[in-house]
Amino acid sequence: MEKKNGNTSLITSNQLRWFYYLVPVAALIIPFVANEYLLWIVNAILVYTLVTVGFNIIIGNLGQLAFANTAFFGIGAYTSAILMVYGGVPYTLSILMSAIVGGLAGFLASVTALRGIRLYYLAIITLAFGELMRWVYLHGDDVTKGSDGLRIPDDIFFLGIPLDSEVPKFFVFLLLAVLLVKATSNLMRSRIGRAIVAIRENEATTASLGIHTARYIVLAFVWSGSVVGVAGAMFAVLTERVLPEAFGLTEVIIHFGMVLVGGTGSIVGSVIGAITLTTLPEYFRQFPGMDELFFGIIIVLVLLFLPKGIVSLLWRISPAFKERYYRD
């Protein structure tokens, strides 16, 4: 398995694999040292990790400018909340349903791409999809409680663990994040993942090789929708009230920023992006009123000087950090 890059690099890809396993294990220490506020931020990072990993499949791996991510996120959150509030469905099951409904939304969004719509045109249509969903939350009064938002029940359990404070939420979120990141990573390394990247590189050539491009485009959207849908279900529990305002245009811009700041098409980059753009705004709290300015400046700087995202700094340490889905 080990690649022959030992001469030039400090870390081999095999060592790196162990390092990746160590990160979540090391994270287990966090609840013992962090207060509820810091833990809340960590939990938010875990949610946004999945949001970014899911979004990156479409933006980075498939290379499509589809902005339906907040739609998936909101649909996941509302699915979970509605099932818990009205159906008395256990949280664990509602997460599964969020994944399924999120996947369906992904399928719906992929229809646009299948009609041959690309680039900015696709971006605008998917943005419209997100905003229409927000209108539905806002006007679906009887079910969504409109702008008051849907308060999720107090007593929710994940496999018997009561999620009544940030600590148990942390363990559950970490588990979900690790499982889904690992699954996504496996998927992207498989034949399917390679086909998806091939479509990004050259759609026509890929098709001419006899690969069913449509099938893989749909698959990428569905997987992305499911992952982000699960993130939505986590977000519902994190914020304890699902509000239409949380799924507006600004939100999708933040998601997009996370993907680009971390590194497009990179899972490690997605995690870095989620961490960076969740913690920095908290850090900037000490300069009130300058949020948007900082957000804009940071992304402009990253785009100009680190066009491949912050993850490219790691590549300088060792090429092993590059996630290769296909041979160069």
Binding site: E292, L293, F294, L303
Partner: peptide, 22 residues
């Protein structure tokens, strides 16, 4: 890629809006 242009224009807009807000 084009993705970069999209984000660049959004971010520049944010800088302007943030500046006006400041």
């Amino acid at each position: 890629p084009h993705i970069g242009f999209a984000m660049m224009s959004i971010s520049l807009g944010y800088v302007l809006r943030g500046g006006a807000r400041f």
